[in-house]
Amino acid sequence: MDRAAAELLSADRAVSEGAALGQLACALPDGGLLITASRLVEFGARAAILLAPGLFRLDLTPQEETLGLYPRILGPWEVDWRAAEESWDGYRDASGPAPIELHGTFGDQYTAWIHVLSFTERDALATHFVAKAEIRVVTER
C-alpha cells in the first residue's frame, strides 16, 4: 500500500477527525478501513453520520416518512454511487426490506460499501442510525 492510500485508510485519522461524531474505526484484515458510528438524529436535521477523511462524508436527514442521504465527496474524486434498490424502503419499513446500502467507487482506486440501519422513534421525533462503511483499495479485492 502506498503512502497516499495508507493515509486515506488510516484508522487513527478516521477516529481523530470523526471524534465529535463518536466515530470508531479499525483496519480490516485485508488492509481496508472500517468506520462505524451510531446517532440519534432529529427529524429535519442534516447530520453527518460517517466521515472517511479525504474520501467522503455521509449526511442523513430523517423525516417522519422519508430519509435524505447526502454523500459528500471530500477530494478530487470522480465518484460513482449506487444504491441497492431493494433497500430503498428499508427506512420506512423496519420489518420489510434490508437496511439501506450504498456502494461508492472513487476513481479506479477505492471502493466504499456503506450500510445504514435505522429505527424511527416517532414520539421523540427522531431516528436512531447505526452506520458502517468498509473502504478498500480496488487492487486488493
Binding site: G18, L21, G44, A45, A47, R57
Partner: peptide, 18 residues
Amino acid sequence: DEDLLDAVLPLLPGGVRE
C-alpha cells in the same frame, strides 16, 4: 455553503437545519 458544512458538520453531532 457546503464548504462551511464540510468544516462544521463533523463538529455538530446533532446536525443543522435549514
